[in-house]
């Protein structure tokens, strides 16, 4: 385990990941280090390859090259269904709940992934108490904000070492966004390595430790958050005004 400057250990090291949809390459030489208790924000315009990067980590897109090392163990060759069992949880873009299934069943699917007990579930329910009142309701009938909460709660049920969140605030009202941010902060405080994909810079500034910009399937720039906070205009080089 390597200890980095922030005092956080690298949990997941990703090196030179390429990913393809058929013959089309959508991810090129993607490399990041995710550290425990740290939030890395991945920014970029539509089609930059952010979602593809997360899918490549999960192994659900063809990724012939690259190395994934989790806690010192090479997991690059694992089957897609084995990746989450190592403790990498995914909150996919658009939530991707099992909408025909109940809230309880969606959470159970998260609990079934690893033999970690129900600690992650209790943390999630403490964060999102509304879910506890909706247990037997079909997930598809929840409100948009509740669905996002369920998607995050389902991932928290893995008691993950790493969590990948793909635009969790997309389409939410400010109050709901605040709840999601709170969840991210809590995961960070619990020592989880967080990779947060967003399009809007203002949505991530308060919770990010580091920022990386993607363009054309690869990382174009990495910025220290202190630098960005001191002078947000550095962002304008990479994204349009206001994201």
């Amino acid at each position: 385990m390597t200890v980095q400057d922030g005092g956080c250990a690298t949990v997941l090291s990703i090196r030179g990941l390429d990913a393809f949809y058929g013959a089309a390459q959508a991810l090129r030489d993607f490399s990041v280090e995710l550290r425990g208790g740290e939030v890395l924000c991945l920014l970029g315009r539509n089609g930059a390859g952010k979602t593809t990067a997360l899918k490549a980590i999960m192994g659900t897109v063809h990724r012939p090259h690259g190395r994934l090392v989790l806690d010192g163990r090479d997991i690059s060759g694992l089957a897609p269904e084995a990746v989450p069992r190592e403790g990498i949880a995914h909150v996919p873009q658009g939530r991707r709940l099992f909408s025909d299934l109940t809230v309880a069943e969606n959470l159970q699917i998260g609990l079934n992934v690893r033999p970690v007990g129900r600690r992650g579930l209790s943390t999630a329910l403490a964060l999102f108490p509304v879910l506890a009142e909706r247990m037997s309701q079909r997930a598809g009938t929840l409100s948009g904000g509740e669905q996002t909460m369920l998607s995050i709660a389902r991932a928290m049920c893995l008691d993950p070492k790493v969590i990948l969140l793909d635009e969790p605030t997309e389409g939410l009202m400010p109050a709901a966004i605040a709840r999601i941010r709170e969840a991210v902060a809590q995961l960070r405080a619990a020592g989880v390595a967080v990779l947060l994909v967003e399009q809007r810079v203002d949505a991530v500034l308060p919770v990010a430790d580091r920022v990386a910009f993607m363009e054309n399937g690869t990382i174009r720039a990495r910025l220290d958050i202190a630098e960005v906070r001191a002078d947000p205009s550095v962002l304008n080089r990479y994204v349009g005004l206001g994201g």
Binding site: T60, R96, F98, E105, I109, N112, V113
Partner: peptide, 24 residues
């Protein structure tokens, strides 16, 4: 049953089922 839940999850969304450790 747990197997039934896996089957229903796979039926609904294969890729997400895989993301949750289900050997589709």
């Amino acid at each position: 049953s747990r197997l039934g839940l896996m089957m229903r999850a796979t039926q609904f969304d294969r890729e997400t089922a895989q993301n949750f450790g289900i050997p589709v």
